[in-house]
Computed example of a mutant assay.
Amino acid sequence: MRHYQKVVLPYRLYAIGAFEMALSIVQSNPSGGELECKINGKLKVKGSSTVLTNPSIEMGIIHSRVLFEFLGLKAPKGRLIQCSARGTDINIESFGLNKVTVEQVLSHCNGDTDLAEQNIVNTLTAANKMIAHSTEIIKIDNDSINGYFMTCSALIVLFNTYFYQPQSLEMPLAVAATE
């Protein structure tokens, strides 16, 4: 469990930071842009910004699903519900903590809780229907971007409130986008 707590969960939460970074780039450059990536001062990648944003967004959506399931939540049939871990799954209960309830999730939302729930459901549905299975192209417009941002924020608050604080642990820092 220590490896999961110290390595796996921070890795997944860092992916949420990368997700937010990619969303921010797409939001400010909807039609893409030129990307240059230097490592130690040497140009290593040059091309369209989509080489960074597309996989980061898809990865973030998948990690969002995994993190919500870790907390004990899923979204079948368009509603957020509590779920049980499957056989060998590691979840919040593996650490002696209670699953997060839908009510707890929505209690942290400022404003329209129906919209907040729908944004989370849309993200989890995108993981299932648009990434894990080739059924549709991921929708990246202002509404979906704002919904994904809300989902990212919710995950950070939920993990800090229901996983890290109860164990008196520091929340891992995420990646930040620069302007």
Rank of each mutant, 00 (worst) to 15 (best):
T101H: 05
T135E: 15
S64A: 05
D112Q: 11
M21I: 00
N110F: 13
L158Y: 10
I156F: 03
L23N: 02
R12T: 04
M171K: 00
K74Y: 10
P10G: 03
A132M: 10
G111P: 01
S31C: 03
I131T: 02
R2E: 15
S24Q: 11
K77I: 12
I92V: 13
C109R: 10
R12G: 00
Y164R: 00
F68N: 02
K46G: 02
R12S: 08
K46R: 14
V51C: 00
E58W: 08
F19H: 00
A177I: 10
N122V: 04
P10N: 03
F68V: 00
K38D: 00
I81S: 12
S134M: 13
P30V: 05
N160Q: 11
G72I: 05
S134V: 11
A75C: 06
S94Y: 11
N142W: 04
F19K: 05
L52M: 14
M130D: 15
F163W: 10
I90E: 04
A177Y: 14
N110M: 12
R65Q: 04
E117G: 07
M21K: 13
T161W: 01
S134D: 12
E103D: 15
I120P: 07
D141T: 00
E179I: 09
L124F: 01
H3Q: 10
A174R: 13
H133K: 06
N54D: 15
H133P: 02
T88W: 10
I39M: 03
N146G: 06
S48T: 09
R86W: 15
